[in-house]
Simulated assay, not measured.
Amino acid sequence: MRMQITFFAAALILFSACQNGQKRQTDQQEQNKATASEQPALPTKEKLTGKWTQPIPGQEPAIQGIEIKGDGSASSINMHTLIYEKWQLNGDTLLLWNHSTGVKEPIAAIDTTVITTLTDSTLVLTNSNGYQSSYTRGK
Rank of each mutant, 00 (worst) to 15 (best):
M1P: 08
R2E: 13
R2A: 14
Q4C: 05
F7D: 13
F7N: 11
A10L: 15
L12A: 11
L12G: 05
L12M: 08
L14W: 15
F15R: 11
S16W: 13
S16E: 08
C18I: 15
Q19E: 14
Q19Y: 11
N20A: 14
G21T: 07
G21Y: 03
G21P: 01
T26N: 14
Q29F: 14
Q29N: 15
Q29S: 15
E30G: 12
Q31W: 10
Q31K: 15
N32K: 07
N32S: 04
T35L: 14
S37T: 15
E38L: 13
E38T: 05
E38D: 06
Q39P: 05
Q39D: 03
P40Q: 09
A41F: 04
L42S: 11
L42R: 15
K45W: 00
K47D: 02
K47E: 03
L48N: 07
T49W: 00
W52T: 12
T53K: 07
T53I: 12
Q54R: 15
P55R: 04
P57H: 11
G58K: 05
Q59F: 06
Q59T: 07
E60P: 10
E60K: 12
I63E: 02
Q64S: 14
I66V: 11
E67N: 07
I68Q: 01
I68M: 01
K69V: 09
K69T: 05
G70W: 01
D71F: 11
G72W: 04
S73K: 09
S73D: 06
A74S: 11
A74N: 03
S75D: 11
I77Q: 01
T81L: 07
T81G: 08
T81D: 10
T81M: 05
L82M: 09
Y84R: 06
K86H: 05
Q88C: 07
Q88F: 07
Q88K: 12
L89G: 04
L95T: 10
W97T: 14
N98I: 00
H99T: 08
T101A: 10
T101M: 09
G102W: 10
G102A: 11
K104E: 13
K104S: 10
E105H: 08
E105Q: 12
E105C: 04
I107P: 00
A108Q: 14
I110G: 01
D111H: 01
T112L: 06
V114C: 02
I115N: 00
T119V: 00
T119L: 05
D120L: 04
S121P: 02
T122K: 14
V124Q: 01
T126I: 03
N127H: 06
S128Y: 00
Q132E: 10
Q132V: 08
Q132F: 05
S134M: 12
Y135F: 12
Y135S: 02
R137V: 07
G138D: 04
G138C: 00
K139L: 03
K139D: 04
